Every structure is written in structure tokens, then in C-alpha cells.
Computed example of a mutant assay.
Amino acid sequence: MTSPGAGGHRSLLPAALSLAGCLALVLTACSSTPESDLTVAQANVTAKEKALADAEQAAADAGDALCSASSSYITALDRYGDVLHQTAVTVGDVQTAGADLGKPAAATKDAALDAKKAQDDVAQAQEDLDDAQAALVEAQASASATPQEPAKAETPTPLATLPAGSVSRVEEAEDEFEATQEGISADTPLVEAAEKFNAAAVALEAAWIHLFADSGCLSEDQAKQADANVSAYTKALQTSLKEAELYKGDVDGIYGPQTVAAVEELQKANDLPVTGTMDKASQLALQSTLGAKAGVDAAESTASTAALQQTLTLAGYWDGPVDGEPSDELTAAVKQAQKDLGVPATGEVDAATVAAFEQALADLQEPEPAASPDPAETAESDPTPSETPED
């Protein structure tokens, strides 16, 4: 026979379990009120804002490290323009010329990877904050009939970035530089080795300079000055290429496709590495081309000036040397001749002046007409008949 106490105990278990379940539901309901969800959402936004600020600071530090490393690397690359053009340069120098670039190159690449990762972290932190702010808006909607707009985070300071185009240009230049080093052996002629190595070093340096500027490593004033310097250099280059009849575009200071094509044409014509970038050998080739053209122009100018001096000499306006050299005295002589010949005294030989000179020269070359004899002079000049001597 079952005792009442025992039976009563068994009959209370289901009720106790049921009560515990109800309490659990009540507690769950209490822990998930709109007010508590709002508090959690607000705390989450605060945490994500701090995470974003930390990520931005880390990215800024990584950007500074990249700027410092790339500056050192660019300086190391720039040395080789001088090394390769010293009189004591040898093929061995060219073969070992990249040895001291290994450490700064590796440091710069590591800094670039760190900067890229830091930027990715910033992007992820911003995305997390956006999600947290969206959740806060939903929590506000549940807690109030009139949801409040979440506080907007301050606009972050722009960070140094790694533009994809500049990064690709650096990667290509690095590959070309390594290939150039591998292609130079002890049997490579010195001039060829120097030209190839210098062309590759200059192209690599130019690529890193672009990345350095594009990554925000320059202050606003420095960036403006750099742009002005690049524009001035490019205008001067375009002008020289145009004088050499290699460039057909506008002199606009933009190192664009037409300028690159003109430099490549110059390099092809002189059997140089075709990079589209002005290296030392290309500069010498351009100077040589302009010098040859200037020599022809100078010869023509000298001949023309000498002819002018000769004409003025025959016309009686010039007693200086006939040497083909222009001078202030020669200009003054031209002006005086123009005044006497009745043409505008500009000091410049134009068509009217040439015609007047030719006429004056023709007049000078005509023989003077013979003068009629003076009877008196004739009488005086005739010999007096000698008297017949007396026997």
C-alpha cells in the first residue's frame, strides 16, 4: 500500500516542472524586451565605432611605414643613374648593381602588404559598423513608435591608398627589372648593358614615384609642387620631341599615350630599350637628334647672314668681317641701308629690302658713262709744238 506522503510527492513533480517552464519563459521574455535590445544595439554600435577608429589608426601607421620604406627604395634606385655613367664603370658593376636593392625592396614590399591588409581591415570595420547601425535602427523601431536616427560617425580622415593601376605598374616594372638583370652577363657589351640596366632602373623608379604620390605620401602642397614639376618637365620634353619631329600632339604637360609613343619612336630609331620612359641614353639620343637638326639650321642661318654682310659691303653699308655672325652693328647697318633705300627701317631683311638691295647692287655694278672731254683741259694737255732749232 502506497503511503500518502509518497504518492503526494510524485503528484507534485509534474506541477513543479510545469512551474519551472513557466518561470523560464517569463525570464526569457524579460531578457528580450525592446528596451534591452536597444541597449545591446547601442553598445554594439559604440564597440564597432571604436573598432573602426582603431583600424583607421592602424592603417594610418601602415601608410606612414609604406611612405618611409618606398622613399628609401626610390633613393636607392636613383643612385644607379650615376653609377652606370661613371668613367670607371664595368660590366661587373652592372651585374652586381642591384645587390644593395634587395633589402629596401623587400622592406617596401612588406610595408605595401601591411598597408593593403590594414586598408582591408578598415573596410571590414566600416561594414561591421554599418550593420550595427542598421540593427540599432531596428531596435529603436521596436522600442518606440517614432524611431530615432542613429548618431552618424564622423567622416574619417582619408587614408593613404594603394591604387590598383599604380600597383600593377610597379609589379610590371619589378618583373622587367629582374629580367634585365638576369639577361646581363659577362659577355654583354658594356654600353648595351649600361643602357639596358639604366632603362630598367629608371622605369622602376618612375613606377614607384607614381605609387608614392598616389598613395598619399605627399602633403597637399608637396603634391601640387610635384604636379607642377612633372607638368613643366613634360612640356619641355614634348617641345623637344616636337622640334625633333617625333611628337605631333599638343604641348600640354601630360605624359600621355602620344608622348609615350614619341619616346618609343625615339628609342626605336636609336636601337635603345623601348620603354616609353626617358632614361639617360634616350636623353642623349634626343639631344643628338636636336643637335644635328640645329647644326643644319645654324649652317643655313650662317650662310644667309654672310650673304647679307657681303651685299651690305658691296652697297657700302658694311665694313665689318663677312663671317656669318649676326650682331647689333649688322642690324644697325641694315636699318641705315633701309632708310637710304626708302624701305621701312626694321633691321630685318624682308622682301622689299631684298629687292632694294638687289637694285642697289645692280646700280653699283653698272659701268659709269665716259665723260665728254673739256676743250680747255684738252688744249692744256696737248704738247706745244717744238720750235725748229736753228741750224
Rank of each mutant, 00 (worst) to 15 (best):
G81Q: 06
L211H: 07
V343P: 05
S301G: 10
S166H: 13
A76D: 02
A285G: 02
K235G: 04
D78S: 14
V94F: 01
V260L: 03
D214E: 13
Q181Y: 09
L84Q: 07
A115P: 03
A24D: 14
L77W: 02
T289N: 08
A160V: 08
D214F: 02
A97D: 10
T188L: 04
A351W: 03
V45G: 02
C22D: 14
A58Q: 14
A206T: 12
A337V: 04
E176D: 13
A201Y: 01
N44V: 11
A203L: 06
G102V: 13
L204W: 01
K280A: 15
A193W: 01
S231Y: 06
T96F: 13
K103V: 07
Q258W: 06
T388A: 10
L159Q: 01
K103Q: 10
E154R: 14
E171G: 03
A151K: 14
S32M: 10
S36G: 09
P389A: 14
D110G: 04
L211M: 10
G291M: 06
P158M: 01
K48Y: 09
T311I: 08
P147L: 00
A112F: 06
A62M: 07
A41N: 03
S301R: 15
E178K: 15
A376S: 11
V263A: 00
G102N: 08
D221Y: 12
L312A: 00
H210F: 07
S166E: 15
A88Q: 10
D110P: 04
T33R: 05
Q57R: 09
A294E: 05
L361M: 12
L272C: 00
D363L: 06
D130W: 05
Q181S: 08
A199Y: 00
E49W: 11
D78C: 03
V45L: 02
V260C: 02
T275Y: 05
R10S: 13
K224F: 10
T87L: 08
F177I: 04
S3V: 09
G63Y: 01
A107L: 09
A200P: 00
A58K: 07
E245M: 12
A379G: 07
A303F: 11
K116N: 15
P367I: 03
P373M: 07
L190I: 04
L312D: 00
V354K: 14
S185I: 10
Y247V: 09
S70D: 10
K248A: 15
R169K: 14
S142K: 15
K109F: 05
P104I: 03
A201N: 12
A360Q: 08
L136K: 12
L113T: 11
D250F: 09
T146P: 00
G324C: 03
R169P: 03
T75M: 09
L84M: 10
E171I: 11
L101N: 02
V45Q: 05
I184E: 03
K248Q: 15
T2I: 15
Y73Q: 13
V137A: 14
A303P: 07
S168K: 14
V274D: 04
G8H: 09
L312N: 01
A135C: 04
A306W: 04
Q258L: 15
L25S: 08
S31L: 13
E182Q: 11
A371N: 12
A143H: 09
D61S: 12
A16S: 12
F197N: 03
P147H: 06
E127M: 08
A135E: 08
Y255I: 03
A203M: 06
S166Q: 15
Q133T: 13
Q310K: 13
